[in-house]
Every structure is written in C-alpha cells, then in structure tokens.
Design a protein around this nucleic acid. Structure first.
Lengths: 208, 208
DNA sequence: GCGCCAATCTGAACGACGTCAAGATAATCT
DNA sequence: AGATTATCTTGACGTCGTTCAGATTGGCGC
C-alpha cells in the first residue's frame, strides 16, 4: 500500500510529474518567467536536475504541461464570466474583460501559454475542442441572433481573440496609466478600449 | 586617417556597436531568436565574447538597440502604406494590413521588439514621439473627419494597436491555414478579420 | 516470500551561456 | 613623445539544458 493520496501512485517520489508542474507554477508566480529553469524546478521539487527527464522529454514539454493547465484555467474563468451575465448583449464584452483580467492576474502563466504557442506556430487543439475558443464563438453566435454565416462567425471569433490577446499583452504597459485613471479604473479602461474597436469594421456585429 | 567608411570612426574594430547590431539581426533572420546569444553575436562580428560589454552594459541593452531599429523600420513601413492610398476610408485598413505584414515578414525582429517591451512593461517612447503610434492615431483622426474627442481618439488608437498586435502574433498559426485558403490568400484573410472587429463596438468609428 | 525486471532517481560530466576582472593593445590628448 | 583612456582578449566563475552510467526501488512471476 502506498501513502500517496492521488490516484496515480508511481515509484519513488509519488507523482513527480504533478510535483514538477506545481513547482514550476510556484516559481512562475513567485519569481517570474526568467527564473523558470529546469534545474530550479527540480530543486523546488526536491529532486536531482536529471530527474525530470524521466517524465518530460524536454524543458519545453514541462512548459507544455504548465501551459495546458493555464489554458484550462482560462477556460474556467471564461465560463464563469459567461454564466454571470443574463444580458446576451453584455456577455461578449464581459468575456473580453474576463480574458484580459486572467492575463493580468496570471501574467507569467499567460506568457508561458503564448510562448509555447508561438514556438509551435499553433494554438493548442484544446481550445477548439470545447475550450475557451468555443466559448467566445458561441457567445458571439448568441449575440448575433444565430443568423450569421459560419465563416463570418469564425472570422468574428478570431477578431475578438486577437483584440483580447493584444490588450492582454499590453494592459500592464505604463503608457496607459493616465488613461486608466481618467476613466476610473482598469476595468473601465478595458471596456472603453473594446468599445472603440469599430474603426476597422464594415461588418458591425450587433446588427440584429 | 582611418579606413572606416562610416562617419563615426572609433578605435580597434571600427564601430563595433554597429557591427554587433548588424550581427544580431543577421542571426535573428537566419537562425531565429533562440540562437541569438551574446556569444554568437560576438562570434559573428569576429570579436571575443567580452567585447560587447564595452558598448552595451547587457545582453538586454543590445537587444534594445535591435528593437529600436525594428520600431523605426515599422515606422517606415506604416508611412509607406499610408502614403500609398488616396482613399481616407481605406487608409486605416491598409495600415492594419501593413502592420501585420511587417510582423509576418520580420517575425524574429518583431518578437524581440515586444519581448523587450514586456520586460519593461512599456512601449518605447519612440512610438509616441512622431512614431508609428502617431501614424495610426492621425490616420484614425482623418478617417473620423476630425470631430472626435481626444480621449476617444486615444482609445480608438489603442484598440486598433491591440487588434493589430494580436493578429500579428497569431497570423502564422496553423489553425488559420484553411480559412486563409478559403478567403483567397493571407491579405484577404487579414482584411476580413479586421472587418469583423465590430462585435465589441458600441462606438463604430466611420460615423461621419 | 524471493528474484528478476523495469521504472525511477542520483552523480558526474559536457558544452554553451551571461558576465566579470585583469591584462594587453592601440588611438587620442597634451 | 609620453600619459591617458578607450578598446579588445584571455581566462575564469556560476548557471543552464542535457546525457549517461550506475544506484535504488517498486511490481510481477515463481
């Protein structure tokens, strides 16, 4: 019998994979992405620098696991935001705010998520299989009353995602500080930016 | 008399700073951002690994110089795009396309530019002092007939910038390949995404 | 219950990295 | 010309990602 509480009960350490991912996330939160070395993760987990190689082929593969958790948590955050609003018109905007707030509250994690994506030149498939991407798409679809073509829906989702990501990466930039203050806080700033996205648009969504 | 052709004619090497930045950019183009080590840059420039420290206090400071050049070239690219269109209505969309195309054509450089910005939590001041940011703002201003408040103009510029940046970071993602093909090419895809940005908007810009 | 096998971990090592200090070299200043 | 100062080299330190040989240990067949 093993003393491990979790369901998978491996050998010496007791689910080292799990411990490594947790250690990585702890380092990310407390010391930032620059301090996230494989050796530091092993140190934090109390194992030798070579131990992780029995669970991940690479440093990249460990980061992939961390990113995977991040995407899942983003998924949860968007679900919560979506459920918390009755007004279909407001949902899409709340989703955007929730997305950016997730990035603001987990900056290191968010960075790992996109660094990994850019290295692979692809977002994780996770997103399309009932993940965060679907939530955005479905919300847009509801908001347009359902009578929008598949291709328009896809394009609108991509557009929303890009705007959200861009804002998420820049939300902490010092240049926006005075504007945030003028508008009465960060969330108000976020909503204001989203509402000014129309200058490119021929196709303006709330057409109904 | 010195045999150096450039105007500034320093000591042993002959403008090593310049040579280092050029070497860095060459490595970026040919081997990608992962291969961009200070030692590799020094090697490429034909000097010892410690030589760069007489011209840049850090690896970060070298990258800053590289990024600075990148922002300037982005500036030129946007100028060209802006000048190439008579129709004020089309200018803003052309600017967006030009922005993303710059990122697509200089992916490693673009990455260095934003990596440095995120490390400093700020875009370079360069942008606001008659740089690329101003071009976007002025173009939006022209496009709105000039009767838009300062704060709305600022917010619209930020919104456009975020959307452009988000799209720039994801334009190469494999998930978009089929959609690009369906729409008849990358540029058509870009325009289509931009035109679908309206779903967030209460304030739709081409109001006149 | 015992021995074997395979999975798991350690220890030491390699090459590459960023950075620094000490010394050599060469351009500039007086 | 001689002193000064900026520039570059050499060598070193600590850290990193990764590999490999060997030690450890749990699970499985007998």
């Amino acid at each position: 019998m093993s003393t491990v509480t979790a369901e998978s009960r491996p050998y010496h350490h007791g689910d080292l994979s799990r411990a490594l991912v947790d250690a990585a996330r702890k380092i990310l939160e407390t010391e930032g992405p620059a301090a996230l070395s494989l050796r530091a993760v092993a140190r934090e987990a109390g194992v030798s620098p070579a131990a992780p190689y029995h669970h991940f082929k690479d440093k990249a593969e460990l980061l992939e696991a961390v990113a995977h958790e991040g995407w899942h948590e983003l998924d949860l955050a968007l679900s919560a935001a979506r459920a918390s609003t009755d007004d279909a018109r407001a949902r899409i905007s709340n989703l955007g705010v929730a997305y950016v707030c997730f990035a603001r509250d987990n900056p290191a994690l968010y960075r790992v998520m996109y660094d990994r994506s850019r290295d692979k030149d692809a977002l994780p498939d996770q997103l399309k299989d009932d993940g965060a991407y679907c939530q955005v798409r479905d919300t847009i679809n509801e908001n347009s009353g359902g009578h929008v073509s598949d291709i328009d829906l896809e394009l609108a989702t991509i557009a929303a995602w890009c705007a959200g990501h861009g804002l998420a990466e820049m939300i902490g930039f010092k240049q926006f500080a005075t504007l945030k203050a003028q508008l009465g806080g960060e969330e108000a700033f976020l909503r204001a930016v989203f509402e000014h996205l129309g200058m490119f648009a021929k196709f303006t969504a709330p057409k109904d």
